[in-house]
Deep mutational scan, measured.
Amino acid sequence: EEEKYTVIYPYTARDQDEMNLERGAVVEVIQKNLEGWWKIRYQGKEGWAPASYLKKNSG
């Protein structure tokens, strides 16, 4: 089951394993960790993003 989330704040990656996020983008969360960083898939790429910048899509 894919978990789709919408980006609610833009984010600029500060590290090579982080993802740039555009507000309104829909991403797939593939791994959650306890530090508040989630691994996401977006446009065929995978990387880490701050969970607080993502909002779960309803339905």
Rank of each mutant, 00 (worst) to 15 (best):
residue 23 R to L: 10
residue 45 K to C: 11
residue 25 A to H: 05
residue 18 E to V: 07
residue 59 G to P: 11
residue 16 Q to I: 08
residue 18 E to N: 11
residue 13 A to K: 10
residue 41 R to F: 03
residue 57 N to L: 09
residue 40 I to H: 01
residue 5 Y to C: 08
residue 56 K to Q: 06
residue 57 N to E: 12
residue 40 I to V: 06
residue 19 M to I: 14
residue 6 T to R: 12
residue 36 G to R: 10
residue 34 L to I: 13
residue 11 Y to A: 02
residue 47 G to K: 07
residue 13 A to V: 08
residue 5 Y to D: 01
residue 36 G to C: 07
residue 57 N to H: 11
residue 44 G to T: 06
residue 15 D to N: 14
residue 26 V to L: 08
residue 24 G to N: 10
residue 46 E to L: 09
residue 54 L to T: 00
residue 35 E to F: 07
residue 3 E to R: 06
residue 8 I to G: 06
residue 30 I to Q: 03
residue 26 V to W: 03
residue 50 P to C: 04
residue 22 E to D: 08
residue 22 E to Q: 07
residue 51 A to H: 09
residue 56 K to S: 11
residue 41 R to S: 12
residue 54 L to M: 06
residue 41 R to N: 11
residue 49 A to D: 00
residue 19 M to C: 09
residue 52 S to Q: 14
residue 22 E to W: 03
residue 16 Q to V: 12
residue 55 K to T: 11
residue 17 D to F: 12
residue 45 K to W: 04
residue 49 A to W: 02
residue 22 E to A: 14
residue 18 E to M: 05
residue 5 Y to W: 08
residue 12 T to D: 12
residue 6 T to C: 11
residue 37 W to A: 00
residue 59 G to D: 11
residue 48 W to K: 13
residue 14 R to N: 08
residue 18 E to C: 05
residue 53 Y to W: 04
residue 46 E to D: 03
residue 56 K to P: 11
residue 33 N to L: 06
residue 9 Y to P: 01
residue 57 N to V: 10
residue 44 G to W: 01
residue 52 S to K: 15
residue 12 T to L: 10
residue 14 R to E: 13
residue 9 Y to C: 14
residue 26 V to H: 07
residue 36 G to S: 10
residue 9 Y to M: 12
residue 4 K to C: 12
residue 13 A to L: 06
residue 29 V to A: 05
residue 23 R to N: 12
residue 35 E to H: 11
residue 18 E to D: 06
residue 34 L to S: 15
residue 45 K to Y: 03
residue 50 P to R: 12
residue 1 E to W: 04
residue 26 V to F: 04
residue 46 E to F: 08
residue 4 K to H: 09
residue 45 K to N: 14
residue 34 L to T: 14
residue 37 W to I: 04
residue 12 T to I: 06
residue 42 Y to E: 02
residue 42 Y to D: 08
residue 19 M to R: 02
residue 11 Y to N: 03
residue 27 V to G: 00
residue 33 N to C: 08
residue 5 Y to L: 02
residue 4 K to G: 07
residue 11 Y to C: 14
residue 22 E to I: 09
residue 21 L to N: 00
residue 1 E to G: 07
residue 12 T to R: 11
residue 21 L to V: 07
residue 37 W to G: 06
residue 12 T to N: 12
residue 26 V to M: 14
residue 14 R to F: 03
residue 13 A to W: 04
residue 33 N to R: 12
residue 22 E to F: 06
residue 29 V to R: 01
residue 50 P to M: 02
residue 12 T to M: 04
residue 17 D to N: 12
residue 51 A to C: 11
